[in-house]
Every structure is written in structure tokens, then in C-alpha cells.
């Protein structure tokens, strides 16, 4: 096959890939570049390739505007969501992978519908209800809401990993006198770590990237980083505030870039998992 590849085709291929990499990365690269510049240099005409570096915008947002608080909130929310999501999800997904009855099938169908549901539908009910119940603006509330929203996706993904573990393994454990729970915990979970890590990554992304729910259920000091960016939107006429917002957006990206660097293989596996299983 390789022998017949013409020069034109490979040039076209190289051009396409170079263009795509540029288009995919440029918005982020440019954002990172101008967040380190003074307003005059950032919007200079014509654009500058090199300009003096300054951390003024990062100082502004992290120290003066107190973005570290939002970073702390993001940490609490994402760690909480990932932990609870995986605990509930593993139990349910294991049962769904092993149980043959109709109830399991129906549960998966309903989960699929829930997974497709626009989140604002739930928000419409949460707003008045949480306000009445006094559950507004609390870490626990946001965590459990994000866990629930994430459950349909999590159990589908984890189930496809559990299905790949041979049932003989837990049967052997049961014969040896384990209870179901012991078989699950002592025999199945130790070989499930790749699946758990992948599902955990996607839970993390959902909680960390969520804007709609997080910006609505939390007030000022309790907002996550992503939701707090709303404070800096629509500030186009105020170059300093705009650049502060850009510094905030860059800060939000940094953990995600490390996430892709370290877990690229697991992310790809997770994206592909659903496709292969149909």
C-alpha cells in the first residue's frame, strides 16, 4: 500500500494535518500568549510576535480578585463528584454487567434517555425546589447533582468495562465462599482499575467543565473556576478586564492540558469504548 502513495497525496495529507493542528491549538496558544502581555501589546496593530512578558493579569485575577477561592471550590467539587460518582457507578455497573433479567435492560434504556437530556430541564426544577428546601449554594448539593447527572454516562461506560471481565472470575470466587460483595470488591475491582480510571477522567471533565449548573446553583464565593468566568464575559470595551478574564480562562485550561498529557491513552480508550460496544 505504502509503495503507491503519490507525492501529491502525501503533500495534501501533510497540509491537512498541519492546518488542523494549527486550527485546533491556535485559539489556546494565542490566548496564553496575550494573557502575558500588557493591554497595549496584546491588541497591537499589527499583531506582535514578541512582546515584554508580564504576569500582571494573573496577579490581578488570582490575588486581587481572589480566583484561588474558585480554584479551591473547583477542587472540592470535582474530587467529590468523581469519588461519589465512581462509588455508585461501579456498584450499579457491575450488577448491570452480570444480571440477565429485563430490569437491567430497562434501566440502561432509561439511563440513555437521561444522558441525552438537556441539563437546563433539571435546572428548572432545581431552582425553586432547592431554594425552598434551603439547599442553595452548598458544596454537597452541587456535588450530588453533578453525580446524578453523570450517573447515566458513568454506568454505561463502566458496564462496558465490566462486561469484558470474564464472569468465571466471580463465579470461582463465589464457589470459594465469597459473598457477592466480597467477590466484587476482592476479585473484580482489582482488575477493573483501567476502566475506573477512564470513567473517573470523564466524571472529572463533566464536573470541571460544567458551566450551566455550577453557575446557577452557587453564588459568588462558592463558584467553581469555570462558572466564575461569567464575571469577565462581555467586557470587550475594557481591555484590562478582558485580559484578566483571558488570564482566568488560561488558568482553567492548565489542569486540563496536564490531564491530556498524562491520560491521553485512557481518554482515547473511553471515547472509543462506547463506539465499539454500540
Amino acid at each position: 500500500m505504502k509503495a503507491q502513495v503519490s507525492i501529491v497525496a502525501s503533500a495534501f495529507r501533510g497540509g491537512l494535518l498541519a492546518l488542523w493542528v494549527f486550527v485546533a491549538a491556535f485559539p489556546f496558544a494565542w490566548m496564553a500568549l496575550i494573557s502575558l502581555r500588557s493591554p497595549v501589546d496584546a491588541f497591537a496593530q499589527p499583531p506582535l510576535l514578541l512582546a515584554p512578558l508580564s504576569f500582571a493579569h494573573f496577579h490581578q485575577i488570582w490575588v486581587i480578585d481572589g480566583f484561588w477561592r474558585q480554584a479551591f471550590n473547583s477542587t472540592v467539587i470535582t474530587v467529590g463528584t468523581v469519588g461519589v460518582s465512581l462509588s455508585l457507578g461501579c456498584l450499579a455497573a457491575y450488577a448491570l454487567a452480570r444480571y440477565r433479567g429485563a430490569a437491567g435492560f430497562w434501566l440502561l434504556m432509561v439511563a440513555l434517555v437521561f444522558r441525552a437530556m438537556p441539563h437546563v430541564v433539571l435546572l428548572t426544577a432545581y431552582k425553586p425546589a432547592f431554594f425552598q428546601l434551603g439547599l442553595w449554594d452548598r458544596y454537597e448539593t452541587l456535588i450530588i447533582v453533578l453525580v446524578a447527572i453523570n450517573q447515566p454516562f458513568t454506568i454505561w461506560m463502566l458496564r462496558s468495562f465490566f462486561v469484558n471481565i470474564p464472569a468465571e472470575l466471580d463465579e470461582a470466587a463465589l464457589v470459594d465462599g465469597c459473598t457477592r460483595l466480597q467477590a466484587f470488591w476482592r476479585v473484580i475491582m482489582p482488575v477493573m482499575w483501567p476502566g475506573v480510571i477512564t470513567a473517573g477522567l470523564f466524571s472529572f471533565l463533566l464536573a470541571y467543565n460544567d458551566y450551566l449548573i455550577s453557575s446557577q446553583l452557587m453564588n459568588g464565593d462558592h463558584m467553581t473556576m469555570t462558572a466564575a468566568l461569567s464575571n469577565y464575559m462581555n467586557a470587550n470595551d475594557d481591555a484590562v478586564k478582558l485580559l484578566t478574564g483571558i488570564a482566568g480562562a488560561v488558568s482553567v485550561c492548565i489542569p486540563l492540558i496536564f490531564l491530556i498529557l498524562f491520560f491521553q491513552r485512557q481518554i482515547v480508550a473511553g471515547l472509543v469504548q462506547g463506539a465499539v460496544k454500540g
Binding site: W20, V21, A24, A25, F26, P27, F28, W30, M31, L205, Y208, N209, Y211, T226, L229, M233, L242, G245, I246, A249, V252, C253, L256, I257, L259, I260, L261, Q264, I267, V268
Partner: peptide, 22 residues
């Protein structure tokens, strides 16, 4: 693959803003 994943993985609000700001 690393570069390709960026627009998909990075927070949608941030991604949209990064295009908007351009």
C-alpha cells in the same frame, strides 16, 4: 492526537471564549 483532543476536552465555555476573543 494530543493537539486534536484540545478543542474537545477543554471546557466548552473556555473554548468558545477563545474563538470569540480571536
Amino acid at each position: 492526537i494530543f493537539a486534536s483532543l484540545l478543542p474537545f476536552i477543554i471546557t466548552p465555555v473556555v473554548g468558545a471564549l477563545s474563538i470569540y476573543w480571536l
